[in-house]
Design a protein around this nucleic acid. Sequence first.
DNA 1: ATTCATGCAAATACTTTGCATCAGC
DNA 2: GCTGATGCAAAGTATTTGCATGAAT
Lengths: 140, 140
Amino acid sequence: MASMVRTLKEQGHRLTPQRQLILEAIEASAGHVSAESVHARVAAQFPQVNISTVYRTLELLQSLGMVTHTHFDDGVAKYHLASLAAHQHMVCRRCGDEREIDVRVLDPLDHHLREQYGFAADLAHFAIVGLCARCAADLG
Amino acid sequence: MASMVRTLKEQGHRLTPQRQLILEAIEASAGHVSAESVHARVAAQFPQVNISTVYRTLELLQSLGMVTHTHFDDGVAKYHLASLAAHQHMVCRRCGDEREIDVRVLDPLDHHLREQYGFAADLAHFAIVGLCARCAADLG
DNA sequence: ATTCATGCAAATACTTTGCATCAGC
DNA sequence: GCTGATGCAAAGTATTTGCATGAAT
């Protein structure tokens, strides 16, 4: 995160308390967070920080490649540090249970798309939706 | 689609012109369509059909398993016939180019998730986002 | 001092909901 | 006739934008 601050300034952007707070909030949540929950975390200490600043900062951090976002089933964008990009999630459509899996599972697919189509997939970009074992059992 | 009408009635739902039109619109678009474009198609002929009816019908068709939806990169839900579920899309983050691929590509992943976690993934639920060959070249 | 970032409020896009009326069964 | 489906309007949620003020450099 020291490096992030550096990157910001190197790219000619200003270092503001808001930006630091937002960055810290994303780190602290160690996972995927919506803009709203980032804002909630920040606003818990500094209520005057506006959610539009959160959105603008998230966009900036994305454009700098420091952060990425993922769409879960509800269509809401969830953000996480780009350095954590090497993970993927399975979300159960029925119970909402969420589980992390190793991206290496996706490697064969990645290679295939690359070789077949020259397509560099960002496979961590979306959560994998489906039915978890328990719910499948429940449904008979 | 005759079967769809049957399913509707068997499940105790009424057959209305709106529902038929919406179903036809989804079929006609032979792909993934947003609620808004379904509405646009229907409204072209019958302007009095309301978009809330489109949403309600799409939800119904989903609950009956006739239709599914997919989130593309913009977070907007795109609907398609469940019978067409056996396809997947790659979308280029940069140029927006969209390309269909065979889901069989996803079979190994599907098997892995099933065996490892008992998770029945709906792999066609999300488009695969990434960078297409041309854009990758453009960016050097 | 300059210029970019912020807060605020308003706008936008997508989707859902309450309610009275209407139509399928 | 009963009940579920529709249209309309309004609310809700997620996100974006214009603009004047304020802060980082």
